[in-house]
Computed example of a mutant assay.
Amino acid sequence: MPWAAPRFCKTPGHPAFTGRRCPECSKVWDRERGSASSRGYDQHWRQLREAVLAAEPLCRFCAAQGRVTAATEADHIQPLRLRPDLRLVPSNIRPLCTPCHRQVTAGFNRERGGGGRSQEGIGGCRSGLPGPETEPHTAHEFSPPMDSSGKGPS
């Protein structure tokens, strides 16, 4: 197996590394981030997460595209950083598979200025995935198709 070329961190004094992130910067970031419990993912969250995944076991985005994929993540529709008051509100939680959850989170972090720690975001996640809710009370309702006059079916 070929070796990866060493990469260099932008922070002065950090050694060369292989992989995705500088190990020294990762240590600092992990310390600043805090534990899962300190970020609001405690026993109450774990119970709500299990209830949401048991009630809706398929990924909501994949199901909207006609794919059957098991949901493994419980995602806050309104991100916890922006709406901590909705942390344990079931209507603010949607079940997603890991790839869909990563895409939503990456889209949110891109909107916030890369990394998600420097700026406040505006509203919910707009990642381009099908059916992204931006308010926790949004229901999945589909309107009948319109004809060219703007009227629904007769």
Rank of each mutant, 00 (worst) to 15 (best):
C9W: 02
E120I: 03
R21P: 05
G19D: 08
R46P: 08
I93K: 04
Q103S: 07
Q78E: 15
T134H: 13
F8I: 15
L58Y: 11
R83T: 03
A74W: 03
A36S: 14
P153A: 00
L129M: 04
F17V: 04
G13K: 07
E32S: 12
M146G: 04
F8Q: 14
A71S: 09
G66K: 07
M146W: 10
A139T: 12
G107C: 04
V52Q: 02
S127P: 04
L53Q: 02
T72W: 02
G107K: 01
G66W: 06
L88A: 07
D85P: 06
R46A: 14
W45R: 06
L80C: 07
G131Y: 04
G131L: 00
S91M: 07
F8N: 11
D30C: 10
K10Q: 14
L88K: 02
D75S: 09
S35F: 14
I77D: 05
V89P: 05
A54T: 15
F142D: 14
R67V: 07
C125Y: 01
H140L: 10
K151N: 12
L82H: 14
I77Q: 00
G152L: 09
L80W: 10
A55P: 01
H14I: 00
L48M: 13
Q119A: 09
C125K: 01
A54H: 11
T72I: 06
V89L: 12
P90C: 00
W3A: 13
F61D: 07
A74I: 03
F61T: 15
G150Y: 06
C25E: 07
